[in-house]
Design a protein around this nucleic acid. Structure first.
Lengths: 341, 341
DNA sequence: TATGAGAAAATAAACGTTTTCTTTTCTGGG
DNA sequence: CCCAGAAAAGAAAACGTTTATTTTCTCATA
């Protein structure tokens, strides 16, 4: 079997409790004993058992990550690796480990999260999404588990620590950019309306249209999945309209890629025939053909701040609720052009 | 405090051990008692504590993921999200959770892995890389921890369960493709030579040259990091040669993107001025400009099989050593052209 | 009416820590 | 040289399970 605190205690001729205190570097133990114990630890190659420690401590030093859908789908979108990068950074700084929820369908994920939390596998969780009437959010609130959400919570916004962009403003600016280029028929391609990002970005888009005195056309609003396929679908729909849009606000780079794809198949050129501004500014957007004008929402930072806030919350239950807004920037590349008759 | 097995036992008027057996659905408990206990569990909203269970069980149902370097860097390359997708799938099927090692520098990661394993946080680990003289591999072998590696182990290959591609053949085929197009000055851009993938692909490249009677030129071999920046560096180096190559075998799509980037800056066209075939066939390769001819190595499958093998190993210590080779395919797109004087 | 086999459930000892409460051992002031 | 009080270390309970061992119960058989 493995070497335990008891073995160390025996070798060092002290009680197990003393060894434990040496590990915690308690001031109650004399330097002399500490040295003796440390030597014994080294000699035996002792490593503390985290599981046992967690049980006694009621804390695991692990953060749970909750994805909106199956890892299978989620990891297709570069948004997620990027948030995780940010989360990792903060977690590592505070010596926390990361655990991922995995599940195929929504209730599957729900069960997984419950198990994670009730099973005390994690000290808290980060929700990598925000959607309406989310069961998980409700559960977390009801049971008082520490959590933070990336995005704007649907309800009780002021009661939930969250890290978000000003998506309303970002979308308004993106749309204004197209308007400034002379576009009047601007469509919006977003994700499911249950997601708060979609809502906010749609509202920003509408506001910009309204301010510019442009008509709001229902048929110009399309909702699809945040995947390449979603973009393809959306574009096909928009192309089937009698009066096609001349510009698009697309809520996600990966979708925009799908859009580009369909456009290419239809022999339509970007930006000559149609202009596109999208969101997230993931690596893909820089390398697509043409490179996409995209709103950089600072995904890494989103993750970093979320993890930092969660850890603060875990370590200090009285930590006040926080709302952190990460700045965004419109990165102009080559997918937008002046509207030409 | 939370509801425990004891609370359930009290309510159901049985001993804690009986409750435990009901959870495990042991045949030693009568149906009548089972029913009674299950009702009590439901009434109290009981959820088993995983940590306690792990301690008693000496098993956590968690798989550890070991990355080659900081999550920060690693997650920039789409290879990793994609393997993780595959791993997730298999893990979910067997009800395992995933935990990630995070560390900045190599020794940092090493410590993290030791902690994970000795701390009994995970039942086994998957190494998402394979490199020469890897301390972690040595440690795992020495201590008999269950692990599988993705890639070909450096030493004792027949003693380590691993999932790999036939990189030697894949690289040979990729190079032959270029040779068939008439290229004679073909360069190789790979990662660090410590990584076994690099070695295998380099050997395959060399073999193809040799078979075609083409000279092997030392100055045509460049090693850089598996990142966009790596590709940029490599290309700059190659462009500084008096006799530039007319085609490139690039060991990674992301690097190839960097190559493309530099080429673009230099106003060189692909495939007119220079042909490229790369590896991995990640989403990026499809959308770059031009779309890259790339060897699809089936990353998802790599992850899926690795996780499946690890779980088998964890659940049955006598599981024999396995070597699993995942097939590859050359996906021809637009980055290769005939060599023209 | 005992007896004993076999089923069903209870008891208690792990698992490896932390932590509260005690006890022991110093130290130095009178 | 004694003793109070501080400092150091130890004993034991707790964390929530699992599981080997023991007890209790039921009922068929002698």
């Amino acid at each position: 079997m493995n070497v335990t605190i008891k073995d160390v205690a025996k070798l060092a001729n002290v009680a197990p409790s003393t060894v434990s205190r040496v590990i915690a570097d308690s001031p109650r133990i004399s330097e002399k004993t500490k040295k003796k114990v440390r030597e014994a630890m080294k000699e035996l190659g002792y490593h503390p058992n985290f599981i046992a420690r967690s049980l006694a401590n009621k804390s695991t030093q692990v953060i749970g990550l909750v994805m909106p859908s199956s890892a299978d789908k989620v990891f297709q979108n570069p948004f997620f690796p990027e948030v995780i990068r940010g989360i990792s950074k903060a977690a590592h700084e505070k010596k926390y480990a990361l655990q991922m929820s995995i599940g195929e369908r929504e209730d599957d994920i729900y069960d997984g999260v419950i198990e994670m939390l009730q099973g005390r596998r994690v000290d808290g969780v980060i929700l990598l999404y925000s959607r309406m009437n989310d069961q998980i959010t409700k559960y977390l609130q009801k049971n008082g588990f520490p959590f933070v959400v990336i995005g704007k919570p649907h309800k009780k916004t002021e009661q939930i620590t969250h890290v978000d962009n000003d998506n309303y403003r970002a979308a308004r600016e993106a749309t204004e950019h197209l308007i400034e280029l002379g576009h009047e028929r601007i469509a919006f391609v977003g994700g499911n309306l249950n997601y708060m990002v979609t809502v906010d970005r749609l509202l920003g888009y509408e506001k910009a249209l309204k301010d510019a005195g442009l008509p709001y056309r229902k048929e110009y609003i399309v909702h699809e999945e945040f995947l390449k396929e979603g973009g393809q679908e959306a574009m096909k729909e928009l192309l089937s309209l009698e009066e096609r849009p001349t510009a698009l606000v697309v809520a996600d780079d990966l979708m925009a890629l799908g859009v580009l794809n369909t456009l290419d198949e239809m022999k339509l050129r970007v930006p000559e025939d149609i202009s596109i501004v999208s969101f997230n500014n993931v690596l893909l957007s820089e390398f697509s053909c043409p490179p996409l004008t995209s709103v950089d929402i600072n995904i890494f930072q989103l993750g970093y701040e979320a993890a930092k806030s969660l850890i603060q919350k875990v370590e200090n239950p009285n930590e006040p609720i926080k709302r952190i807004i990460i700045p965004h920037t419109l990165i102009k590349r080559c997918s937008c052009g002046y509207f030409r008759k």
